[in-house]
Design a protein around this nucleic acid. Sequence first.
DNA 1: CTGAACTTTCAGAAGTTTCTGAACGAACTA
DNA 2: TAGTTCGTTCAGAAACTTCTGAAAGTTCAG
Lengths: 182, 182
Amino acid sequence: MTSAANLYQEAELLIADAVGDVIEHWGFRKALGRVWTVLYLAGDPLSASELTERLSMSSGAMSMTLKELQEWAVVRRVWRPGERREFFEAETDLWKMISKVVAERERFWVRSVRERLEQACGILKSVPTEQGRGALTKAKLLLSFAQLAEGVIDRFLASRRADFSGFGLLEKTPRAAVPEKR
Amino acid sequence: MTSAANLYQEAELLIADAVGDVIEHWGFRKALGRVWTVLYLAGDPLSASELTERLSMSSGAMSMTLKELQEWAVVRRVWRPGERREFFEAETDLWKMISKVVAERERFWVRSVRERLEQACGILKSVPTEQGRGALTKAKLLLSFAQLAEGVIDRFLASRRADFSGFGLLEKTPRAAVPEKR
DNA sequence: CTGAACTTTCAGAAGTTTCTGAACGAACTA
DNA sequence: TAGTTCGTTCAGAAACTTCTGAAAGTTCAG
């Protein structure tokens, strides 16, 4: 194996693991971040076995990881005429990825929290003690935060784009040497 | 036990668990959120045994949970003259709580991610292949996101306050019924 | 139809996190 | 000093998450 390939692999694992950490902080498994990263860095679609080898994972874990990545629309399955195997490539549209997660996961639990707080406020209204009144005031404050969060999420999703303007980054994405896909 | 006390307890647990979920999404244990909530709703300082009873936790878990909450400066120990036991009360300053977490936890791992990406970019620079050049471009993009995040965090902390203006919430006490959603 | 190539599934293994509860320790009282 | 009350620690238990690898499934060429 050449030195260049060794170095590439070293860098690849370093980046994959760093992204894995980021993704883990977002409540996903590290493996999801690592696999996405290898595909992203590769540019070209890779096969499952290629990924299995590069990341030293079992075929079972890879299969489940790819399934989950596809459910989140973060990785796409690519068919190559003449090839028996399936290939995978990374979605690079950040807005697509983030909005999907926000819409399907964040939105859901924020609503669940808000609903429970509302229910609790309803109960507290019928508690005539000093304790009950004090708690109701605070519960309402918590509730207003939940409502605020829900509103921010909805407006964020309605905006149909990540508003990172002002940071001047996303607009002029240095489109890598990635061949356009259909 | 009176009905009012029963109802209070029901609402308390409902809220505690909802906040526990929120806190869990922030990477802490549910128990931290639950204990903080009971203290917050109570208003007055409570003893460890009181908390243990209300949340049906073991004394050991409560001890560890209170220790952690104090490390995050989210709960304060209160001494009551004449009382042998220690009492605890909830910190209610949101900015204090959030900035502490951001400064001591988020800041740290974002930096770690950024450093690893930098190292990887350094390695990729010496990989003269096609593959290496393509990956370098993308790694640099990831790096710029990490740097962006680091900058946002630092500016956030430097601002010394949560800038929630525009949501018109934190400034004044909440008005009861709020929202309107379409 | 048969066999090769490849993927998916899933039961159990391994790893990780969190909790329990008994033991210990500290602070105070009688 | 002995006893009481709390608080803390920690080894093991329990709960939960993730991974492994073999078996079953699918697809396709010959």
